[in-house]
Amino acid sequence: MKSLLAALALTTALTLPSIASARPVTLTTTLKDYGGNGAYVALYVTDATGAYAGSLWMAGGKSKYYQHLSDWYRATNGNRAEIDGITGASVGAGRTLKITLDLADALFDAGYELHIDAAVEDMRDSPNEVAVPLTSAGAGKATRGRRYIDSFSYNF
C-alpha cells in the first residue's frame, strides 16, 4: 500500500494543465504470481498525440535497471529528474501496489493515456504492459496486463 500526498504529485508535469482543480486518484496495480524477483514497474502518461507527458510512479530504486522499462526509458532517456520524489520499492510477485495522487481534472477525458512498463530480473522485459485511456467513465474498471500485471484500475 502506497499513498502519496498532493504535494509530491504537484511536482510533476501532470498537474500543470490546471493546478486549481485536481482530485485524489487511487491507482491499484496487482501483480501475477509470475515466479520471479520483485518487478520494476513504471507508471506514466502520454497525451493525445501519444507523446510522453509525465511520470506518476516508479517502483524500483536502482537506476541501472531502468533501461529494461524500455518504453519509459525511450520516452525519458532514463532522466531521473522525471521520477524525483515518486520512487518506491519494487513490487513482489502477487503483491499489490496502491498509490494515491492528486491528479489534475484536465487529464481526464482529454485523450491522455496511462501506461505501465514492467521488467523482472532474468525474465522478459514487458514495456506497455498496460495502456488505458484516462476517462471519468473508465474509473473503477479493471484492465489486465500483458505479462506480469494481473489487474490495474484507477478510482476517484
Binding site: K62, S63, K64, Q67, Y73, R74, N77, G78
Partner: peptide
C-alpha cells in the same frame, strides 16, 4: 558498489 550506484554509471543506452 555498482548496485548502490557508488560507482560511475557506465554509458547507458544511446538516445532514441
Amino acid at each position: 558498489a555498482a548496485t548502490f550506484e557508488l560507482l560511475p554509471e557506465g554509458g547507458s543506452a544511446p538516445a532514441f
